[in-house]
Design a binder for these strands. Structure first.
Lengths: 366, 366
DNA sequence: ACCTTGTGCGGGAACGTTCCCGCATCAATA
DNA sequence: TATTGATGCGGGAACGTTCCCGCACAAGGT
């Protein structure tokens, strides 16, 4: 047992990786000294320090991260799950919002020294059970989602949205969707619209429930009829059909339901449309045109979307961005604070949105 | 030093986690026995096995994954990088192709017992250096990309596309884009098109180079003029402008260049369009309409895209899908084979594509 | 009666690192 | 010359697990 094939020799000793002791022996030093030299700690003479470093470099030494982690007690790993739609496995990334949120979260985490492990929605706990996760980020958990409970039960801190507020070991960052919805409705009103209609998914997500509530509140305060079309399932098809329902008249088949007074035809046609469901702006625009609307002449349009196509349509579509990058940064910052400074406060952060006003929601001056 | 606050006591001993020895002591057994009981190995009497399990359950024992990994020598962790566009940090997920590929890779890997760590493009090696990665998956590395070299130099196996073929420690899975491009051109020809034009990014990616080569080969074999418009940068804006260049006539400003004989106006107008650059199908369709084309009357259209909006346009757009799920599965299967069965073969796998023919590329029968 | 075989469990090393010490050595001071 | 203090380096434990052994004891055969 000299160099190759240590433990239970496989067949051809893939790469008898060089350890700290190997470097130490080669350099005629102790592993303690070499460790100190490489980590720039301890009291060492410059000569010895350089000798250790040079030897390590020459031998191609790379520290064993796992051993380090064991010593340190933390793996600097964060799990990342998107709740909701556990039935539609791993399609979540197709949504521009989640795509950008995911990318930004990974990048921010890495800059703070943490790596993000992608956990597809609906992952069994047996699958992430043997990952040394320091925390788990759960974005948009469904109301009946098991994942949050499972992770908390495993003793792992959870970072999610406001729906986990108050639970032991759970922290949250959320978007200020109440103000956002109100600001869009205000914008519609400023532009002269009096019959705005809202298209929103009929999901168990806290986010969508809050959109609905904010809209209801605003309508009540302004004495306006509440016009809502709810979309049964995600995807461009259902959303486009819901938009058509909203624009054409009464409720139709296919999962959509109309709450309270639905939009009516004729003189009562809607004059503004707020689409909160994730849908491609060009498709929404096309649907409006098919139903004889001129945007923004007859209909003001705002989509809650991160879809970049919005600025390339004719007219460009006004979007309300949730600023996923800002959410990611706020979330990771909060996480690091809790994990490293033992911040016991289960407080949360509210991130503001931004309305990018484009031609689709600005009334023409004629 | 009894239970709480072992090493250098922090301030309030967050959670003095229960270890194997704690369970053992509590149950009046040895750690060896408890370990065997929980892992269902060794020779134990049913009574003892159950006692150990019950005690562990009662005490809320959860094994330390890091220690396990140290013993096992592998962390079952795979890095995942998207090369190219290191300048546009972490936007890659917005492309439906990469989004689906990423999701599918994560899901497949997890099913095989590996977890995926998301490494934003342009990550410094100092950032992933202290991750216990068993392998790194690099999708679409740019020709001058440092990442592949860095990872290989770190002694970590790389799984990428065919561009890494032949390099020590590198393995590949690629898409059969040559056949794919030819099949689309054949399809155009079958539908009566004689002046197809190709829109392709001007990138250093192997994929795009191969698209260009396949097109050139097919044109030469069929004695057709080679019509190509290259797109300088990614994004819907540039691609749409490139499409307009292709449809309108000669080369224009804004980064596009026309190789060889560019598409001409008048009677020589193109009658088929193959867009390989990632772009929103509705936007491409709209651009064609703006230039007076009827699709598929005057112009057959095929997009290489995973964008789900393609089936919701009017007419629906024919797409060539690279089948990201299939690529992911082939890649991970190959990876597991190499990592676990020590398969030294640096061979690769070629995954076939699929053409989803829709109305946009089928000539009307009149 | 002894030797063998098998079963049930525990001791201890190993995985590779970090870090707390302790022991030399040497300069500076009494 | 003896005492202190600082400096430079190494020994060994610890992190929490798995797994190779070895030991005790019981049962079966001669």
């Amino acid at each position: 047992m000299t160099s190759g094939s240590r433990h239970g020799g496989q067949h051809s000793a893939p790469t008898p990786r060089v350890r700290l002791v190997d470097v130490a022996r080669e350099a005629g030093l102790s592993k303690t000294t070499v460790s100190a030299a490489l980590n720039d700690t301890g009291r060492l003479s410059p000569a010895v320090r350089e000798k250790a470093r040079e030897t390590a470099r020459r031998m191609g030494y790379r520290p064993n991260v796992t051993a380090r982690q064991l010593r340190a007690g933390r793996a600097k790993l964060i799990g990342y799950v998107v709740g909701e739609a556990a039935d539609a496995p791993s399609v979540f990334l197709e949504s521009p919002y989640f795509a950008r949120l995911t990318g930004a979260t990974a990048a921010t985490a890495l800059r703070r020294g943490y790596a993000l492990v992608l956990l597809p929605s609906g992952s069994l706990q047996s699958e992430w059970a043997d990952l040394p996760l320091d925390a788990v980020v759960v974005t948009d958990p469904g109301a009946d989602d098991r994942i949050v409970d499972d992770v908390l039960a495993a003793g792992i801190p959870v970072f999610s949205d406001r729906s986990v507020e108050g639970r032991q070991g759970a922290h949250w960052v959320d978007v200020d969707i109440d103000s956002a919805v109100r600001s869009v409705l205000d914008h519609f009103r400023d532009q002269g619209a009096r019959r705005p209609v809202l298209v929103v998914p009929d999901s168990t997500t806290r986010f969508h429930a809050e959109v609905f509530a904010a809209h209801r509140g605003w309508c009540a305060e302004h004495g306006l009829q509440e016009r809502v079309v709810r979309v049964g399932e995600p995807g461009n098809g259902p959303v486009v059909r819901a938009v058509e329902t909203a624009l054409a008249g009464g409720p139709e088949a296919d999962g959509e339901t109309v709450a309270d007074g639905g939009p009516a035809a004729g003189a009562d046609r809607p004059d503004a449309l707020l689409v909160v469901a994730e849908a491609s702006p060009p498709l929404v625009l096309e649907a409006a045109r098919r139903h004889g609307y001129d945007v923004p002449g007859d209909l003001l349009l705002v989509c809650v979307s991160e879809d970049a196509t919005a600025e390339h349509t004719e007219p460009p579509v006004t979007t309300l961005t949730l600023r996923p990058e800002a959410i990611a940064e706020a979330g990771i910052d909060h996480l690091v604070k809790v994990l490293e400074h033992g911040s016991r406060e289960p407080s949360g952060t509210l991130v503001p949105t931004r309305l990018d006003v484009r031609a689709s929601s600005v009334r023409k001056h004629d």
